[in-house]
Amino acid sequence: MVSVLQAIKASNTHQLCTVILHADGLSVRWEDESKSLQASVFLRKELFVEYEVPWLRKEFGLQLGLLVDTLHVFTAGTAELVLRYPGANQELICEMTEEGAGGVLCTYASLDSMEVEPPRDLVGFWEGPESFFLVPGAMMKEVIDDMEWGAVSKSVEVLMQRSPPRIVLSSRGIGGLLITLPVGQLTSVQCATPEVRQIYKHKHLKTAFAHLPQSKDASASMGTKVTLDSQGMIKVSHMLSLGGAEARGGHYTSEAAYQDSQRVAEQQRVSMVQFLILPEDAGEDDEL
């Protein structure tokens, strides 16, 4: 969970986030000050050993950095981490008890929650038709990192062409940098119009890609889908495998059944990280 949350780490250390508990899972969401970037993580209830929410929906605010740092302490442990909300003073309580050779170790933390205005769900503003492409997350991360070199103007233009399929990212500053994504690495490119062209703030794109966990970590990025809607809002979704999918017992009658069950098991260990970024113009015009 930590590496998933790290994936949405904000550049602003005091970024507040909203934790939303509902019947089928837990999500953590935060919105940039400029309101043109929104990041969220969704963890389905199947990812938890036990998941119980007595409310239909409950929201509370936390400091994202603190949440990540606190959970990071627990990653050293090997036992189950219990998260409880609310405590006596509306705080989030984390507890872990380990029994090892050296003795019993009990780690506990409490995080003060605060009132936050629940961020709008930008998904509600989504308008079709959409254009999208699938790309390995690590490659995108490199591309965006390279963009920094040229991005004196602090914005990056994304251009998608239908035929031949071509995706170009460019930044203009002192000199310019143009990166064409290798077509071979892309899967299912789809363009709603013959050409889609939008400009985004580089720092937002960087937030969306920079903190992706590396494959050497426990949770690897499995794939990234970049989608643009007709208004130019861009959606970046990373599928992150949480790893640790325990081998399940039982015998499989056929190879297909085995593969099926593997796929199901894998799906259960996947969490979704999503970023929504408004194009530069829209974000400034609306002054939301």
Binding site: V104, L105, C106, D112
Partner: peptide, 22 residues
């Protein structure tokens, strides 16, 4: 009793570890 506690506190967060059986 052989218990060790480590505690830290930041703004809005308390974190502690107890080790028993030392």
């Amino acid at each position: 009793q052989g218990h060790l506690h480590l505690q830290v506190a930041g703004s809005g967060v308390q974190l502690a570890t107890e080790v028993q059986g030392l």
